[in-house]
Write a protein that binds this DNA or RNA. Structure first.
Lengths: 202, 202
DNA sequence: CTTTTATGAATGAAGG
DNA sequence: CCTTCATTCATAAAAG
């Protein structure tokens, strides 16, 4: 497969002392991840299909057992495609949190650059990371309030909270879009449990 | 299996200009090849098995075709979960992506209608969806550049791109949309290039 | 090691 | 067109 040959030729980098190593860009990494993932999905589909056929008629003759058990595949299959993600260091987190609180919440493009610059002194980080962080922080902070607000207030339910329980409720804000699937499917949606399972499947 | 996060930590190399890139050792490369080839083999075997079953009896009910062609059907035979919002099928995505790249970026009212018409042959979709998609695609592609642009360039690490042609590649065909469980069947049949490469892996 | 939770990232849609 | 919000997905970290 040429792809790798090409890779080899194009991605040899002379690192410092004159040693050549293979280098992959994020894009290439992503491509690989996708390719593998495609196979993983195909395998799953085929396996399911086979099960269906086999069950439908007791053709237990051809077992897939050995295929499933291949050490290289089981469990490893999908993990391979795992993708890395940024994780803020505690220092970075403190700073971000501080900025978020004092901050007036809306870090514009310029501000983002500054923040990124400051944080990069404490570890790897990119502007995108900062951008996403604030985006998520804001969204989640807001969502938390929604769970507290609906309550008449007074009493006690202490703000703080994080009561993890109700947090994951299903806001069934199903505003159906034009393409929502047939009504029957909606039933599935009502039950968080099932939904969760389905997510696991894919 | 090998974790990428670890890879990232251990294999980040500071190449010349201070840019970090991911590096793979020959062993890791080899491991990847083996893993991919395992999938390739299993897929082939499963396909063969399925053909055998299918031929053996015309199971009208479960057509292989349906599974492969309907992007909405997921692997496990699980019904598609109703979505709150439109999600392009992989076929639609490919087309959109293609139009975006070749296209001159500004789909006017008329153009949008045409595109919508074409895409609706591959799944539910509305003009609004198309409109939003291009809007977002453009905006994000642009933002990404801004985040990257400030980069002084320097070592332009790696091969990647720079295909002299144009910068469409650069945009973000890069990391993108692939979060959704890839509809394997579609990619499989529609991207011969990838398929071919993978078969050569071993 | 497996399950659960927290959270980084992706993306359709809405606002301005 | 650009920015922001809402929702979802995947995964690192934490819990069991």
């Amino acid at each position: 497969m040429m792809e790798w040959n090409k890779l080899e030729q194009l991605n040899h980098q002379n690192v410092g002392g004159g040693i050549y190593v293979k280098v992959m860009t994020d894009e290439q990494m992503e491509l690989l991840r996708r390719q593998i993932s495609v196979y993983a999905t195909i395998c799953e589909q085929l396996v399911e299909m086979h099960k269906a056929f086999a069950a439908q008629q007791h053709l237990a003759g051809m077992r897939l057992g050995n295929l499933y058990c291949d050490p290289l595949v089981t469990a490893a299959g999908h993990k391979i495609t795992a993708r890395q993600r940024w994780t803020p260091t505690s220092v970075q987190l403190q700073i971000l949190e501080r900025i978020f609180n004092e901050g007036i919440g809306t870090p514009d493009k310029q501000k983002t650059k500054e923040i990124t610059a400051e944080l990069s002194q404490h570890g790897q980080i990119s502007e995108t990371n900062v951008y996403n962080w604030f985006q998520n922080r804001r969204a989640r902070s807001k969502r938390k309030q929604l769970f507290v607000a609906p309550n008449n207030g007074e009493s006690e339910v202490e703000a703080e909270d994080e009561s993890p329980k109700e947090k994951n409720t299903k806001l069934e804000s199903t505003k159906s879009q034009e393409n929502t699937a047939p009504s029957a499917e909606n039933l599935y949606f009502q039950d968080p449990e099932i939904t969760a399972e389905m997510h696991c499947v894919d």
